[in-house]
C-alpha cells in the first residue's frame, strides 16, 4: 500500500543492466550540468562573445536520451509511480494474474513504441535541429531504444518473479 516516494533507492546488488545504465546516465547528467553552468558563466565574460548558442538544445536532447535510458531501470525495480492501493486488497492469486496481464499490456504498448518510434525516427531523419543542424533521427532513436529496453526489463522481471514463485512453492 504505497506509492513510490520520489527518492529511488539503489538496490544492494545492482544487476549488470543497472550498472551499465548507471555508467552511461551519471556521466551524461554531470556533463549536462557542466555545459549548462558553462553557458550561464560564458554569457557574463568577454561581453558574451563566447556565449554558447547550442547549450539549450544539447541539454534538451541529452535529457531525452537520459530519461529513456533511466525508464527501463525504473521498470526493472518496479519503481515507477503506481497506484496499487486497490489491487492490494484483492486475494493473492488474482493479484498475480492481474500483474501478468499488466506486464503483457506494457509489452504490447512498448512494442508499438518500438515499431512506430523507429518509423518516426526515419521520418524525422531529414529534419534538422535548430542550433546544431543535427538530424533528429539521432534523438528520436531514444524512443525505440528505450522502449525495447523496457520490454527487455519487463520480461526479465517476469522471469525473475516466476523463479521466485517456484522457489517459494518448493519450500
Amino acid at each position: 500500500m504505497q506509492e513510490q516516494s520520489e527518492i529511488v533507492e539503489a538496490p544492494e546488488n545492482p544487476t549488470l543492466l543497472e550498472r551499465i545504465g548507471e555508467a552511461v546516465i551519471v556521466p551524461l547528467m554531470l556533463a549536462i550540468i557542466a555545459i549548462g553552468f558553462a553557458s550561464v558563466c560564458l554569457r557574463y565574460v568577454f561581453n558574451g562573445h563566447y556565449a554558447l548558442f547550442w547549450s539549450e538544445e544539447v541539454i534538451r536532447y541529452a535529457f531525452i536520451w537520459l530519461f529513456w535510458l533511466a525508464a527501463p531501470i525504473l521498470v526493472w525495480r518496479r519503481a515507477m509511480f503506481t497506484v496499487d492501493l486497490f489491487t492490494n486488497m484483492l486475494p493473492k492469486p488474482i493479484q498475480r494474474v492481474i500483474a501478468i496481464l499488466l506486464d503483457l499490456a506494457v509489452i504490447v504498448l512498448m512494442g508499438t513504441f518500438v515499431y512506430y518510434g523507429w518509423l518516426m525516427a526515419r521520418v524525422n531523419a531529414p529534419q534538422l535541429s535548430s542550433a546544431l543542424s543535427l538530424s533528429l533521427f539521432w534523438i528520436y532513436l531514444a524512443i525505440p531504444v528505450g522502449a525495447a529496453l523496457i520490454i527487455f526489463a519487463t520480461i526479465a522481471r517476469m522471469l525473475r518473479d516466476v523463479r521466485n514463485g517456484a522457489q517459494e512453492a518448493g519450500r
Binding site: R43, N47, G48, H49, A51, F53, W54, E56, E57, S130, A131, S133
Partner: peptide, 18 residues
C-alpha cells in the same frame, strides 16, 4: 535558436541570447 537568427545578430555586432 537557429543559425540564421544567431548569424543575423552577430553580423550586427549584437549578442544573440536564446
Amino acid at each position: 535558436e537557429s543559425p540564421l537568427y544567431i548569424g543575423f545578430a552577430k553580423a550586427l555586432n549584437a549578442v544573440p541570447t536564446p
